[in-house]
Simulated scan of single mutants.
Amino acid sequence: MAIKLFQLASTSSSILDTNYFTTVTASTPIAVNASATWSAARWSTGSGATATGFASPGVDGKYQMFINGVLQQSTNVTVVTDSSVHFVNNGTATYTIASGTPITLTLGKLGSTGKVVVP
């Protein structure tokens, strides 16, 4: 009798991902203990449409932000699902997001099957 220890793959896709993209148009300094708020209208979806809000992560989801391809700490970003993204500076010095910097916001979450798909 074979015992199934875990499931590596599923025949139906169960990880849902949603991506949003933007490129910084003007350098944005963020002072210590401050934040910068960018509305959803500054972001585009994977299909190229302007975002009207951000998908809800639900209980099984997680946002990840990449600035110039570098994954950011979750404490540096807050996403308000219906309207905006807040860049937070909890550090000890002002930082600047330079003009022309590409930013990707990714939401990954499990689908209704609750199974993780390994491609």
Score class of each variant (00 low, 15 high):
Thr50His: 07
Val85Ile: 14
Thr96Trp: 14
Tyr20Gly: 02
Ala2Trp: 12
Ile3Val: 15
Thr94Cys: 12
Ser44Asp: 04
Ala9Pro: 00
Asn76Trp: 03
Arg42Met: 07
Tyr20Ala: 02
Gln7Thr: 15
Ala34Val: 09
Thr11Phe: 01
Pro29Tyr: 13
Thr23Tyr: 06
Gly108Lys: 05
Ala55Val: 01
Ser74Asn: 14
Asp17Leu: 05
Asn90Pro: 02
Asp60Ser: 12
Thr22Ser: 08
Trp43Glu: 04
Thr45Asn: 14
Val85Cys: 05
Pro119Asn: 14
Val32Met: 06
Thr45Cys: 08
Gly48Phe: 11
Ala55Glu: 03
Gln7Arg: 06
Val24Ser: 04
Phe66Pro: 03
Ala2Pro: 15
Phe6Ile: 13
Thr28Ala: 12
Asp82Ile: 06
Pro29Gln: 15
Thr18Tyr: 15
Ala2Gly: 11
Met1Ser: 12
Tyr63Ile: 05
Gly91Phe: 10
Ser39Trp: 06
Gly111Arg: 00
Leu5Pro: 01
Leu16Met: 05
Asn90Thr: 11
Ala51Lys: 03
Gly108Phe: 05
Gly69Met: 06
Ala26Thr: 15
Ser47Tyr: 03
Ser83Leu: 07
Phe66Asn: 02
Gly58His: 12
Val77Tyr: 01
Leu8Ala: 08
Ile15Gln: 08
Thr52Pro: 01
Ser56Trp: 01
Lys109Trp: 09
Leu71Asp: 04
Ser12Trp: 01
Gly58Arg: 10
Asn90Cys: 00
Val80Ile: 09
Thr101Lys: 11
Ile97Trp: 02
Thr75Gly: 04
Lys4Gly: 02
Gly100Arg: 11
Val70Asn: 08
Gln64Phe: 10
Trp43Leu: 07
Ile97Ser: 02
Val24Thr: 15
Leu110His: 00
Lys109Arg: 15
Asn89Glu: 08
Ser35Arg: 08
Thr18Gly: 04
Thr81His: 08
Lys115Tyr: 03
Ile97Asp: 01
Phe54Arg: 01
Phe6Asp: 14
Thr23Glu: 13
Ser56His: 07
Tyr95His: 09
Thr18Met: 10
Gly91Pro: 11
Ile103Gln: 00
Val24Gly: 04
Lys109Ser: 07
Asn19Gly: 04
Ser99Tyr: 06
Gly48Glu: 10
Thr81Phe: 09
Ala93Pro: 01
Asn76Cys: 03
Thr11Cys: 02
Phe54Thr: 04
Asp17Phe: 04
Gly91Asn: 11
Phe21Asp: 04
Tyr20Cys: 03
Met1Lys: 14
Trp43Ile: 08
Gln64Ala: 14
Val117Thr: 12
Val80Cys: 00
Ala31Tyr: 08
Gln73Asn: 13
His86Gly: 00
Leu16Ile: 11
Trp38His: 11
Thr37Ile: 15
Ser13Ala: 13
Thr11Met: 02
